[in-house]
């Protein structure tokens, strides 16, 4: 059912939430495709819509208040939006798996690790208890938990944060999914443990050929892990490009600002950091123009009045900005210096 290796294609997805404050357009038109073995990074600050995008793909939006109001989600030829809840359950956890930020709250504290791991394969792969138990041990070994045969019968509180995230990954990969969605998988972990987990995801991706969507606020994490990146702001896609191109020649002032505001250890200290002024907008009450105009150092009158176009810079590079071409050329010129 695949067409030229594409496993997921999302077209103009819109997910809105009905709130007391009015309609929040949490995701307002996002389009991307993901090929087998590819890794897509979705970057954004809190409230940008990056997690809602992923929950929509998994059909995990609580309804009400949320609702996918438009667009297509095609997974391996299957129209995900048209599936019944029972059909969704057959896909979720088996063919599309996910890991969340907080491994402490994603595991049931009352159940043994073995029980939680076995449940997945008994349900989706029809394993017997015995098969499922052996498979659970094998998965724990795969994700690098030492002494897996013994630890499989432990409880979550007996594992450290990094080890729990490994258990989550083991669980997610139990049915050999085609797509793994990782939502801030290392945010709650220490840097040395983060490095271990990222290395593990990279390694498993290569061994199993899984496609990955990596959602994070950390530009450093996506730099080394992804093939292409989507930058989100206030529910909109602000920029979309292959990873190297996005970092080398960004075509959106927001992306440029984000890249500049991360302290670079190689540079001298003492100079103030570049800072994006102001605060992210209230997504329930967006201004008519560009949602970033208030904070943008390049904004002109038109930015405050008219909603910006989604400009195609080249085949794979898009930017939501009235001045996308100029910003891109500016980045190219800076790069050339």
């Amino acid at each position: 059912m695949t067409n030229n290796g594409t496993i997921l294609s999302v077209n103009d997805l819109k997910t809105y939430f009905q709130t007391e404050d009015g309609v929040v357009k949490a995701v307002d038109g996002i389009t991307f495709t993901l090929k087998k073995g590819e890794t897509l990074g979705i970057v954004g600050e809190s409230g940008s819509g990056k997690s809602v995008t992923n929950l929509s793909v998994m059909r995990l939006i609580p309804e009400p208040p949320g609702k996918i109001v438009g667009g297509d989600i095609i997974f391996n030829g299957i129209d995900v939006r048209a599936l019944s809840i029972d059909e969704v359950r057959k896909v979720r956890g088996k063919r599309i798996a996910m890991i969340f930020q907080d491994p402490m709250t994603s595991l049931n504290p009352f159940l043994k690790i073995s029980t939680q791991l076995m449940e997945v394969t008994q349900l989706h792969l029809g394993h017997t208890k015995d098969q499922a138990y052996k498979h659970a041990i094998k998965m724990l070994e795969t994700v690098g938990i030492p002494d897996a045969a013994k630890r499989v019968d432990g409880y979550p509180h007996e594992f450290s944060g990094g080890m729990r995230q490994r258990v989550m990954i083991a669980m997610a990969l139990s049915c050999d999914p085609e797509l793994l969605i990782a939502d801030e998988p290392t945010t709650a972990l220490d840097v040395t443990i983060q490095a271990q987990i990222l290395e593990l995801i990279k390694d498993l991706r290569e061994r199993m050929g899984t496609s990955v969507i990596l959602i994070t606020h950390d530009l450093g994490v996506v730099a080394g892990m992804t093939d292409k990146i989507i930058v989100m702001y206030a529910g909109k896609v602000f920029e979309q490009a292959p990873t190297r191109e996005l970092f080398a020649t960004p075509a959106n002032p927001y992306t440029k600002g984000l890249l500049k505001s991360v302290p670079d250890p190689a540079h001298e200290q003492g100079d103030p950091l570049y800072q994006i002024p102001g605060l992210p907008p209230d997504v329930a009450h967006l201004p008519p123009g560009c949602p970033f105009a208030e904070r943008c150092d390049r904004a002109e009158d038109i930015c405050r009045k008219e909603y910006p176009p989604f400009v195609q810079i080249n085949e794979n590079h898009f930017s939501l900005c009235h001045f996308a071409q100029e910003v891109y050329e500016g980045s190219v010129a800076e790069r050339g210096q």
């Binding site: 840097v191 040395t192 983060q194 490095a195 990222l198 950390d218 530009l219 450093g220 994490v221 730099a223 080394g224 990873t243 190297r244 970092f247 080398a248 890249l259 991360v262 250890p265």
Partner: peptide, 11 residues
């Protein structure tokens, strides 16, 4: 060494 650098070339 564990801190990821926001630069794909370096990474």
């Amino acid at each position: 060494s564990a801190v990821p650098v926001p630069d794909p070339e370096i990474e």
